[in-house]
Design a protein around this nucleic acid. Structure first.
Lengths: 249, 249
DNA sequence: GAGTCGACTTGATAAATATCAAGTTGATAG
DNA sequence: CTATCAACTTGATATTTATCAAGTCGACTC
């Protein structure tokens, strides 16, 4: 474990409130590794041996069934993934692969389970992390069931705009085929949907998005904190570098 | 809080490992109430004032957007709902209403948040509950994105068969319109889907389901522990009366 | 610069799913 | 028993979405 990565991990909401001694014990068992883009880190169904933390780069979470595959989210620094499986000592439900060259820290799951039993602050942080992750997935499922394809696209664009500080002009952070999969549609359909949304207040050229009529787009997508977030800031102790959760994609 | 409900709640995985003193403190602030069928208990968007526990009956969790509505799950005794919102002190993401006359216990959320900060065993139980709930929703989202309507129906029937001890003949536990909504389709489509599945090894008449060719149905649905569960028994202390989670619908 | 590759787009078509409009059934109230 | 009502079913149709088949574009290699 390289010492220069410790501070950024220590500031993660998951770790920022625990006793220093326990944090250091956890990190003694940790591995840090750099991976090229396109490397599979986790295969769904495998035993949950490690908690993964994305220190640099980006990681796609995806799920497969037969020959079909679907993107479930993208994790960016500094975020962790696969926490629930580690805690339950159950098989991973999702696979993970790097989208870019990435620096990843891996924490052995048994260490993790041992520590939250004796560090209540850490347990509280895990609770907050899991509660947030749960709510994120509920929102995703709600979107899939309540909105049609074009509405999901519109809501996604508005959410991305929010991440970009509500700018009317921003750049998509991931490939469109990945966005399509995340939103539960084919790439062809996303492409057509984006074109059709030109009459609803947004124009997309390549990776560049321009909101031309925010009111109109907002009326069309009808975004909603119960569907698109964000959640209020955690009741958990807040740490300076804001966390990055699974949502942004 | 009526004393005769305490034991069944005490046996919940969520509460069975905490200190008796803390359990009793929690229960002193609890309300117990009986509701008729069709009563709305929770409205999405409301502040999370209470954790709800279903002692008798059944409760539908559902979500709305505009005039659309979708069933997200059904909670049966003895299970709790809306835990994540209570923990994060954030608005409920789902509404809840009774499907039958139900006995419900309500725990003030502030009490809950206070107790898991000083009872590590309780914190660990909350962690396990949330991790399980997270994995359940991930499975639901995976099913929606990876399977088509008929495959979802077939997998649902096999799952129900599993709950019925793998019987080839069993009875649906909830109305079909609710199943349809849970599976992300219209009632008409569920009806047609059930008819079409007669050629895939299952026959449904009214509420009665008969698996006529399990191998064929299994091949068609391709069920999978990563999509349909179950998860291995919790690493948390196991309590005698088996928990009922959100899945069964 | 030419070639290659994958992402993206577009159009034509097919398949899946929703909607609308009757019916039918089954439970319950009077 | 009859009336009523909601759930369920069925058929006809419309809409949405996926699939297939070319193309275009841009990045990168040689």
């Amino acid at each position: 474990m390289r010492i220069d990565e410790l501070p950024s991990i220590r500031h993660l909401p998951l770790f920022c409130n625990m006793a220093t001694e326990n944090f250091e014990a956890l990190m003694r068992g940790a591995y840090s590794q750099s991976f090229p883009a396109g490397m599979q880190l986790v295969e769904q169904g495998a035993p949950a041996d490690f908690l993964f933390i994305v220190v640099e780069g980006a990681v796609e979470m995806y799920a497969g069934w037969g020959k079909r595959e679907s993107t479930m989210g993208v994790i960016r620094p500094v975020g962790c993934f696969i926490l629930a499986a580690c805690i339950k000592d159950a098989p991973y439900l999702m696979s993970a692969r790097t989208l870019q060259p990435s620096k990843i820290v891996m924490l052995p799951a048994p260490d993790l389970r041992a520590v939250f039993r004796r560090d209540t602050e850490f347990a509280v942080s895990v609770i907050n992390e899991l509660a947030g992750a749960f709510r994120t997935v509920i929102r995703h499922a709600k979107g899939l069931k309540l909105r049609d394809a074009r509405q999901r696209i519109a809501a996604y664009l508005l959410e991305q705009s929010r991440y970009a500080d509500n700018a009317n002009s921003f750049v998509l952070q991931v490939e469109k085929r990945l966005i399509a999969s995340y939103l539960g549609m084919t790439p062809e359909n996303l492409s057509r949907g984006l074109r059709q949304l030109e009459t609803e207040g947004v124009r997309v050229k390549g990776m560049e998005v321009t909101v031309t009529d925010r009111d109109r787009l907002t009326e069309f997508a009808a975004p909603n904190v119960l569907l698109d977030g964000p959640d209020p800031e955690g009741s958990d102790g807040i740490c300076l570098p804001p966390p990055t959760a699974i949502h942004p994609v």
